[in-house]
């Protein structure tokens, strides 16, 4: 028996919004530590890694490890039926071919359940090595979303250059060029609003705007985002989900021909 109950059901709604444009299907791997999902987009340029820890749920039971392959469009449709303040419970029997989502309104006066067929997915699973990154940038997630949106008007690619002075986002295209420089916040009153840079080596990398814009669908999950970069390796864009886990996106860089 698998059962995971979350009073803050809107978290699951937001998680689906954060992955459904990038992934069409994915496997939710559940064990007694929690729920994990790892999947690449169709073109194998980016990867989503989601972790929701068991202790972040209001009730969590997983008697046997269970892998549930799901069509994410279908899951998103079902979760759209949940109210923002609803409690969401996911349930499945051992070896089941369906999963059930139960939504309860705060006053318990409305209870809905949706049963969905599971899929057998044979998806490639990548081993992501532990990496010490040369630069990590923490910044408000809404600011990052704004920068990605603004710069994608100028070109398909965005250059992210991190030095000890700050971080510069640039794009160039037919209409011209755009540069956005963020300096490290001098004094931090509210950590959520700060730009904090940790740098061992300066790094400049180029990424596809389209994927960065997909990643920013996670903005409502966290007030801050962390970008981790080293030369010639994928970028990591991490949104921490309060008290329960994180969603990380990996994006392969564009390399000069």
């Amino acid at each position: 028996m698998f059962e995971a109950r979350l009073l803050r059901g809107s978290i699951l709604k937001k998680v689906l919004e954060a992955i459904k444009d990038l992934l069409t299907q994915a496997t939710f791997d559940c064990d007694d530590s929690g729920i994990q999902l790892q999947a690449m987009d169709n073109s194998h340029v980016s990867l989503v890694s989601l972790q929701l820890r068991a202790d972040g749920f209001d009730k969590y039971r997983c008697d046997r490890n269970i892998s549930m392959g799901m069509n994410l469009n279908s899951v998103a449709k079902i979760l759209k039926c949940a109210g923002d303040k609803d409690t969401v419970t996911m349930k499945a029997q051992d070896n089941a071919d369906t999963v059930t989502f139960v939504f309860e309104s705060p006053n318990q006066e409305k209870v809905s359940d949706y049963e969905m067929k599971l899929m057998n997915l044979d998806l490639e699973h990548l081993g992501i090595p532990e990496t010490e990154y040369s630069c990590t940038i923490r910044m408000p997630s809404a600011e990052f979303a704004r920068i990605c949106r603004d710069l994608s008007q100028f070109g398909d690619s965005m250059v992210i250059a991190c030095t000890k002075e700050g971080v510069k986002f640039s794009a160039t295209g037919e209409i011209g060029s755009a540069n956005i420089k963020l300096a490290q916040t001098a004094s931090v009153d509210k950590e959520e609003e700060a730009v904090i840079i940790e740098m061992d080596e300066p790094v400049t990398l180029t990424f596809a705007c389209q994927y960065l814009n997909y990643f920013t669908k996670a903005t409502s999950l966290s007030p801050q985002v962390q970008l981790s970069m080293s030369a010639d390796v994928p970028l990591v864009v991490e949104y921490r989900i309060q008290d329960i886990g994180h969603i990380r996106y990996y994006l392969a860089p564009k390399i000069e021909d």
Binding site: M40, S43, H44, V45, S46, L47, E124, H125, L126, G127, I128, P129, S157, T206, A208, V233, P234, Y250, L251, A252, P253, K254, I255, E256, D257
Partner: peptide, 14 residues
Amino acid sequence: LHSQESLPVFFNDA
């Protein structure tokens, strides 16, 4: 000009 790398170039199959 830049060309897009693919992710499995960096990460091994688990």
